[in-house]
Design a protein around this nucleic acid. Structure first.
Lengths: 216, 216
DNA sequence: CCTACCGATCGGTAGG
DNA sequence: CCTACCGATCGGTAGG
């Protein structure tokens, strides 16, 4: 049952500085799924990128669908850890809303594949992704919504902000900007992609201008 | 050469109230490409949706790639006609920027597949789509940019708006909201998709609040 | 617009 | 983790 298993493994199965084979599969799958889409990515191409044979890949993840779920779960897991940390800050002086958005932006800018993958999931499996977001994150967004309402009462935030809708829009704007902002900037430039930083800066301006009350 | 061609056609080749076969292929392809992606859509599935055989489809569009280009071109053609009409209005009293955004929103809300398809193109072929947007629309967005700058000088618009970046962000927000807003609303709701109208309304609020100067 | 067909590639299995 | 293999489906062609 377990005897001889080591015999079947190759050196690549060990951590060789690029992570375990399983980790490398997840990394290459994230990259390829986000770049070419789930349907546009063959198991063969993932195996090639990792440097193994296709059946070896299936040894680690029994099916393509199983691999997809694990890739997605690695993103979900990050935020299930991060949100409690961000939303219960030691210093209450900073604006939780802005710091959450900053974390959101950093997360997606750090690896553009993440934003592309999430957008693709929302397009390919809207109901399923809706359910996942709802199950995993709606308690946290409810908290943010309450926080926003408190800020409205204190006069910090505009009264015309619709808390829940605003939160959804911020996510749409952030992942939209990271995932398709570069290519969309063809609208205004003949040269090359507008630097991501500039788009993000204008995005932050838009969010803040539509959130904070004016203090003349 | 041309003799006998009619003999080969079936009645479905004529306009039977649902449009010509070619139009129906384009319509079903737009739907399926937007719903499942280009790679996720087989020619067989399109042929089935239209009610013809696969080789008949290839008679109308010599390759899948050719079909994709024609589907995309139908969207581009619409805006090449529409933009001149919107941006040279008879009554100059209305805000061209807002009326353009309204047209944009109406266009994508009218058929959600359009927004999904554009987002998929931006993800699947970023460089190509960048070039297409640049070639087809950058003169028009330049015009809108100039108009925006004039409004800034007259005090109508905020001085901190970055005209070109703002235009790109508005497009990202509009197509993002229409394409993935519904599924993203899982963040704040356990029930069902947030009505699209509410998301659009908050989007318009955000755009206006971040565009117009305050007039207290 | 259809029937008949093709080579290539797909996700996945058997078995070691 | 690999070799050998499988049925199904892919985009596309020949020919009428």
């Amino acid at each position: 049952m377990q005897a001889g298993r080591e015999f079947l493994m190759k050196e690549t199965d060990l951590d060789n500085g690029h992570g375990t084979v399983k980790e490398r599969i997840l990394k290459e799958a994230l990259y390829l799924f986000s770049e070419r889409g789930f349907e546009g990515t063959s198991l063969q191409s993932i195996a090639d990128a990792v440097g193994i044979q296709k059946p070896s890949l299936i040894y680690h993840f029994p099916s393509k669908e199983d691999l997809r779920r694990h890739v997605l779960e690695s993103l979900v897991a990050y935020w299930k850890n991060e949100l409690p940390r961000i939303l219960t800050p030691a210093d209450s002086s900073s604006d939780r809303l802005v710091s959450t958005m900053t974390s959101l932006i950093n997360f997606f800018v750090e690896d553009l594949n993440r934003a592309r993958l999430v957008v693709r999931e929302l397009l390919d499996r809207p109901e399923e992704t809706f359910a996942l977001l709802s199950e995993q994150f709606s308690p946290w967004t409810r908290l943010i919504g309450d926080y926003l309402r408190m800020g409205q009462q204190s006069g910090l935030y505009r009264k015309d902000v619709a808390p829940e809708l605003f939160i959804v829009q911020v996510l749409v704007m952030v992942i939209g900007t990271v995932a398709i902002g570069g290519a969309t900037s063809g609208l205004v430039s003949t040269e090359s992609y507008t630097p991501r930083g500039l788009l993000i800066k204008e995005l932050v301006r838009i969010v803040q201008a539509s959130l904070y009350s004016e203090q003349p």
